[in-house]
Amino acid sequence: MNLPAPFIAAFRVGLFSFIIVGSVFLTFHATKDKIADNKHQALLHSLQAVLSQDHYDNDLATDVIQLQTYTIYRAKKAGRYTAAILTSTTARGYNGDISLLIGISIDGKITGVRVLNHNETPGLGDKIDIKKSNWVLAFNQKSIRDMSSVQWAVKRDGGLFDQFTGATITPRAIVNEVKKAGLFFQQNQQIIFQ
């Protein structure tokens, strides 16, 4: 049988596509569960960074609710809710979105804050990252309720938190975002923990 050349070419493209897409599909299936497990572990790992282990005995990564723009992970100990971790994103940084994990215990204290993703200027704004500096630890144990609204600001704005030399916008964005999340937590505590 002699097919015209374009048919042979089309047939070859089809055959190659089938084989390559097939191998991608097989790889996808072989790795799917492992990848999901890795992601789960990685999520747990980052959640543990903002909430110490004595706060919970449940699987943090699975007790999760969505409230407005926040994804909220709830920590439970001996059947009672003890704290929540809010994921939050602010666009008020210097360059693009900054996403945060903010842990707040039921008595309104910040248990920890971590920056998950950012594109801030290397060497200036990137000190918000725990890998670069300890700045973000300044939030630990700060109370949403006891601190006045004025204190929740960078020093340049009259508040308690350091800014960086040459970069005020980035820390300001984070401080304001943590404050916002804290207020949200305070106002919606009933709904979050019901």
Binding site: F16, I20, V24, T27, T31, I35
Partner: peptide
């Protein structure tokens, strides 16, 4: 097609193991 396939397989394999 082949390069995209290889890169995707590398990416999946790496994210698994």
């Amino acid at each position: 097609l082949m390069i995209a396939g290889i890169v995707t397989i590398i990416e999946l394999t790496m994210s698994a193991w």
